[in-house]
């Protein structure tokens, strides 16, 4: 019995809360199935984007629109937010004080909102330069892929707010813990999708 009894992806509660750990097996696995279906959705948006690379209809292309510095800041914010969420999960597992969890979730929320702020600013700048979805196939595919991820992050931010409120209201009850476990998977998953976006969409175009 040297290794942790793992029942599902993400941080396992294990011995810190055996009851919740037992419930988590089924509940978290179900959510993981949803995430994998979400992965298929993103894969197809990536496929569509790949077929539209260079299809700019003689209009402006990625060089005119993409701002490497802004994308770097967005990446830093999202990557660090994934890490701070990890610390929220650790606090939930090992520390009985709900306020520690709330603080880490709050930091994660601020980073997520910062990411969205930069992203929206990027889109507005693009639109100002004539980069709207109807301009070309390339831009249609771009605006199908990247804002879908942004929308997921936005949903994640709302979910974080809900979990902060629930943690404050109910403390670290079993249901609250199970929801934060699932939110954690969602948040880390979005980080992974973002890695694919910076590699395929931004860095490849600006290389």
């Amino acid at each position: 019995m040297s290794s942790i009894d793992k029942k599902h992806p993400g941080l396992n509660l294990g011995r810190s809360d055996p009851g919740a750990h037992q419930d988590a097996e089924e509940i978290v696995f179900g959510f993981w199935v949803f995430l994998m279906s979400d992965l298929v959705l993103f894969a197809l948006l990536f496929a569509t984007f790949a077929t539209m690379i260079g299809r700019t209809a003689d209009g402006p292309g990625p060089q005119e629109f993409f701002d490497l510095k802004s994308v770097a800041i967005e990446s830093a914010l999202l990557l660090i937010s994934s890490f701070t969420f990890g610390y929220a999960s650790l606090a939930m597992k090992y520390r009985p004080e709900p306020m520690k969890v709330v603080r880490w979730l709050g930091v994660t929320l601020l980073l997520g909102i910062g990411f969205l702020g930069f992203e929206v600013h990027d889109f507005v700048t693009m639109a100002g330069k004539g980069g709207t979805p109807q301009t070309s196939g390339f831009l249609s595919a771009f605006f199908a892929l990247v804002p879908t991820h942004g929308l997921h992050v936005f949903a994640g931010c709302i979910w974080i707010v809900v979990m902060i409120v629930q943690t404050l209201a109910y403390g670290l009850a079993r249901d609250v813990k199970l929801r934060i476990l699932r939110l954690g998977l969602f948040w880390h998953f979005l980080d992974i999708v973002w890695i694919a976006i910076i590699s395929v969409v931004y860095l490849r175009a600006l290389a």
């Binding site: 793992k6 992806p9 993400g10 941080l11 994934s82 990890g86 880390h188 998953f189 890695i195």
Partner: peptide, 8 residues
Amino acid sequence: QFRYFLHI
């Protein structure tokens, strides 16, 4: 990220 954040 799969290994260290999602613990797979």
